[in-house]
């Protein structure tokens, strides 16, 4: 076992119901640390639901029942001593539509720091440094350094989405969850976000839900195929696309349904 990389996310017998509808059925998954894992499958197969389990944000949407076990970095996130606030601080999420907050670029980046620290602990210099670091890492610094006081909601979509990633970084997350982060972007924007994902992997575990099979193929190291709430296949991306083990996977990637 010494040559396998450490695991970031593991689930065992994970079941989830929205009221009466079962959205996840006995999902067992092992997501490795520091790589990009993509979740693919037709609409309604439970990809986004699974993603939202990893920071327990599903619970905010009401009428959700979950059974089974989810471990992040070896810690069961349903343990009674788990603080949802600390959990969500370590597990960031990026959404389909870029959703920067309707405040300035600067305030967006430091928003997370401000809500997780006493005001007296934060100096202006520390905040400035965090903003420069996060924006540099996401490739926004050059374009935005003179517009830090501009409204984030007035930026181009691609910049907004990068900013949504940038605002997670000052919290030093372990895992970044992305829910179809490129579906609102054009080709250039998509490429920019994918390049950003490559730049961030290694330090962060990235899990990305995508509708776009070509994107999963291009941009992920491992790939998980889901169908009707069940995990069908999880393997290295090349293997999944070139030598699918399950006939359902083969049919999906050939475009027979989806």
């Amino acid at each position: 076992m010494s040559d396998t990389p450490p695991l970031s996310i593991t689930t065992r017998k994970l079941n989830l119901w929205y009221a009466k509808f079962q959205a996840l059925i006995n999902v067992d998954v092992d997501i490795k640390h520091g790589i990009i894992t993509s979740l693919i499958g037709p609409s309604g197969c439970g990809k986004t639901t699974l993603l939202r389990c990893f920071n327990r944000v599903n619970e905010r949407y009401g009428y959700v029942t979950t059974t089974g076990e989810i471990k992040l970095l070896g810690k069961n996130i349903y343990d009674p001593d788990v603080s949802l606030i600390e959990l969500r601080k370590s597990v960031g999420m990026v959404f389909q539509r870029p959703n920067p907050l309707p405040i300035s670029v600067y305030e967006n980046v430091v928003f997370g720091m401000k809500i997780h620290h006493e005001r007296s602990q934060l100096t202006r210099a520390a905040l400035d440094e965090a903003v420069e670091k996060a924006l540099t890492e996401t490739g926004l610094w050059k374009d935005l350094k003179d517009r830090l006081d501009h409204r984030a909601t007035a930026l181009q979509l691609e910049q907004q989405q990068k900013l949504c990633i940038a605002r997670l970084l000052p919290l030093k997350p372990e895992i970044i969850l992305m829910d179809e982060p490129c579906s609102a972007l054009d080709v250039e924007g998509t490429r920019a976000i994918e390049e950003l994902m490559f730049a961030l992997k290694g330090r962060y575990t990235i899990v990305i839900v995508t509708h776009n099979m070509a994107q999963a193929r291009r941009a992920s190291d491992e790939c998980i195929f889901m169908l009707l709430g069940e995990l069908i296949e999880h393997s290295r991306t090349e293997d999944l696309f070139l030598k699918p083990r399950n006939p359902k996977t083969a049919e999906y990637i050939e475009g027979r349904y989806g």
């Binding site: 944000v57 905010r60 928003f111």
Partner: peptide
């Protein structure tokens, strides 16, 4: 979506309301 953005960085409801 603004509320979701706040929840997902671990903001409490009051922090979300206030900010």
């Amino acid at each position: 979506s603004f509320r979701e953005a706040c929840w997902n960085v671990g903001a409490t409801r009051w922090q979300t309301i206030q900010a």
